[in-house]
Design a protein around this nucleic acid. Structure first.
Lengths: 223, 223
DNA sequence: CTCTAATTTGACCAAATAGTCAAGAATCTG
DNA sequence: CAGATTCTTGACTATTTGGTCAAATTAGAG
């Protein structure tokens, strides 16, 4: 898929030195920085995060970090860029030729899995959206919008063919997003309510089962 | 219900002067400040918001604002306190004696209404939770936890009596929270995807209808 | 109206923060 | 190994930010 957000001038000193290929150290350190940055931005958002925090988490001096990404904004954009594609893949993968219930089951399961395995990515988006989507706003209005319209069309066709109960396709997609995001973003709240049982093996499967029961039975056509 | 979070020393100069009653001006200005503060904190969270922003939105000088709330923390706590009770009321109101489907329909409808009418409150919580619930953590682990356990018990009984399809009660509550919060917190994303249709009259009813269809049909026992 | 207490604010301070820079250290290339 | 390049960092600057304070203004009680 490639560059999702508009490339912004030059991100670093290394970049500015013509478009030479990245060195080994550059590759390693950029990865380290992005990993540290997503953890920090996910908790406090862009405004609430500091370059020092990211540098500390990356175990790197601040000037060194700024050697790879000249400005805080550049780190932030890079992190979003780095995560955005992955986030859309599950929806893209819904297959119009497949079995409706099976496709949606797979979609929900995959989304829940991603939320569980990479909650920081989910929280990063949540923060960006809460702040008014200053960086990914255009992306939402173009790429995301188009993808949702496309997949809503698929679901609408399934409904028309009687293979799904009558349901508003867009709101169905929103509902799935809502629930899957929730388990990542509100993890602290869920932990507070459930206590230790969240760490028991099988909790994830149990969650998936419960969500699938609620959502799928709601859209499955009555016998 | 009263004080939800632990009172923290004295919030303001006025408070410190013994527990004299609030003056007219105090009442007005505290209200103005809290209104301004919720709008600011809802967008950028605690760390990302500045006292100057709040003062500007309240059309008040910063020292004047700090005359009513001595520290940024105090404003933040007051805003959360001010909102927390309202947020729980709908769940509290679920009546074990009522009709299951009717009770849940009312709960979901009310939650959606609150999200639509006061999205800032919803986003304030979202930010607090994303930041790790530093302030309301205790509240979540005590009051919220207890309330959820109680209402989960009610739902479990309904299921046992065959008045609801088999469903995990806690996950059902989480699902409802997820969806209702989503329409407030991710408003920007929803707007980006739907475009202008979100502002058409009847959109809220349409949303409620769609959500109720998905969730309720999923838990309604099959004929 | 007068006196007191409450309210308001300009000017200020210390700490935090984004970002710079020059010089030293490590790495790579031939 | 030698020279060039890349990488790293201590020390620094300008700006932002949370919070203070004394003095001026306004509101309220009698």
């Amino acid at each position: 898929m490639g560059a999702v957000l508009d490339a912004k001038a030059y991100a670093s000193k290394a970049d500015r030195d013509s478009n030479r290929q990245s060195t080994r150290i550059q590759t390693i350190n950029r990865e380290i920085i992005l990993d540290a940055a997503i953890a920090v931005f996910a908790v406090h958002g862009f405004r609430g995060s500091t370059v020092d925090q990211i540098a500390a988490k990356a175990e790197m001096s601040k000037p060194n970090l700024l050697y790879y990404f000249r400005r805080k904004q550049d780190i932030y954009r890079a992190v979003l860029e780095h995560t955005l594609d992955d986030w859309l893949t599950p929806l893209s993968a819904i297959d119009p030729q497949g079995d409706p219930i099976e496709e949606l089951r797979r979609y929900i399961t995959l989304k829940l899995k991603m939320s569980a395995e990479n909650p920081a990515a989910s929280r990063l988006f949540a923060n960006e959206i809460l702040a008014g989507a200053p960086v990914i706003g255009d992306f939402l209005k173009t790429r995301l919008r188009q993808l949702v319209h496309e997949k809503a069309g698929v679901i609408r066709r399934w409904v028309a063919e009687g293979r799904l109960a009558p349901v508003d396709p867009t709101h169905l997609i929103f509902t799935v997003w809502a629930v899957t995001q929730h388990y990542a973003d509100f993890d602290v709240q869920i932990r507070a309510v459930l206590g230790s049982q969240i760490d028991q093996p099988g909790f994830r499967e149990q969650t998936a089962q419960a969500v699938l029961t609620i959502v799928l039975n709601g859209i499955r056509p009555r016998g």
